[in-house]
């Protein structure tokens, strides 16, 4: 009995280690502009354990801010809705998903063009997606018109040579 209990506790310990090695964060919040700041600060705090540089944190915060702002302005067109943010650490990188159940994007290639904006009336610069692409190492965007949009970003924080 004694040894079995020991084995169980070893297993639990190794599971805990795995969880510790792959920390994650899930957030859901309403489509309100004050949550742009909340989302980027949460992600910045989440990656601290990877010991990022100030530059990396700034880039990450900017990319998250763009993604969440797009959900609010374009996904939900400044109306009500829910935004979900998922982050996970994996092998020295952070993976981030920002998704909404909003109106979706009809033409993703057009949306990706620098300076293109569907809302010039709101004085948008049309640079949001270009900035996300430049500030992270991997970026992809999936959208179904009428159902929502999901942005995936991956940023390497710790490099092997550091």
């Amino acid at each position: 009995m004694q040894s079995l209990r020991k084995e169980v506790s070893v297993m639990e310990f190794s599971e805990q280690i795995q969880v510790l090695q792959q920390n994650y964060l899930h957030m859901q919040f309403p489509s309100r502009s004050e949550n742009e700041g909340l989302a980027r600060v949460a992600v910045a705090a989440f990656v601290v354990e990877l010991d990022p540089t100030l530059e990396q944190v700034t880039e990450l915060k900017t990319a998250v801010s763009e993604a969440v702002t797009n959900c609010i302005i374009h996904g939900y067109e400044l109306g009500e809705g829910e935004i979900r943010l998922h982050c996970a650490l994996h092998e020295g990188a952070v993976e981030i998903i920002v998704e909404d159940d909003g109106k979706g994007i009809d033409d993703i290639e057009q949306a990706r063009l620098p300076l293109y904006t569907s809302r010039p009336d709101l004085e948008r610069s049309g640079m949001g997606i270009t900035i996300m692409e430049s500030f992270v190492d991997e970026f992809s965007i999936n959208s179904t018109p009428g159902q929502g949009t999901r942005v995936y970003m991956r940023k390497i924080i710790q490099r092997d040579d550091r």
């Binding site: 801010s65 763009e66 004085e123």
Partner: peptide
């Protein structure tokens, strides 16, 4: 302390 593309829109406008 922080700025994103909304700030770029402000400048260009």
């Amino acid at each position: 302390d922080f700025m994103d593309s909304s700030g770029l829109g402000l400048i260009l406008g």
